[in-house]
Amino acid sequence: MATFLIEDVTKTFTNGEVEEQILKGVDLTLKEGEMTALIGPSGSGKSTILTIAAGLQRATDGEILFEGKDMTKMSQEEIRQVRASEFGFVFQSSHLVPFLTVEEQLLLMLDVAESKLTKKEQEKEVDKILKLVEMDHRKDAYPASLSGGERQRIAIARAIIHRPKILFADEPTASLDTKRSKDVMELLRQLTKTLKLTTLMVTHDEEMLPYVDRIITMRDGYIEE
């Protein structure tokens, strides 16, 4: 079942006089419960297509269909709402809020996603997700006191606590060593399956590929079949 369709998306950047087409017509279908990895040389447009799909920047042309609605036609506010309640994000750095404890980070995300849960239910949900990422023992810690791997786990917890449909991850393991990278990949895979997420990730690391269901290679703004 397809929940996310990228159809003939192009992206042109203008630097002064020079126009450069970075994406030259990208088609991509993401499936529920499936983990898709984008690979390819640096500068091939992986991050660009991921951020366009995630509603963080606009496509120059093409369609992005999420649950049948074309995101390229949505207003900024509509896109924000989709990002807040339907999408989850993990970036290369964990980008946690420095002055919030682990628990507060997750509660904030539920707040942003306008969760309908009661305060009690929200706290239960936080406990549950923290167990899932094996971080329940650091509930009251501030990001500064966590290791890089632990921070990334919290970032993942924040990305899924509001039960998004799509999870976007741009090189989520790039700042971690191999052992921790594999742990994070294992976690992402497991979450994708148990929560029936649709996961799109970018990676550079060949070693991470065994964990994904589908591998898409990009080259020069195209998808290589």
């Binding site: 963080l56 924000r80 709402q81 990002r83 807040a84 309640s85 999408f87 994000f89 970036f91 980008h95 809020v97 420095p98 995300m109 942003v112 996603a113 924040r158």
Partner: peptide, 16 residues
């Protein structure tokens, strides 16, 4: 600025 960018990315309203 970085933090605000992230908060906006995850969907927080500017007014918030």
């Amino acid at each position: 600025i970085g933090l605000y960018g992230i908060l906006k990315a995850i969907g927080m309203k500017t007014i918030a």
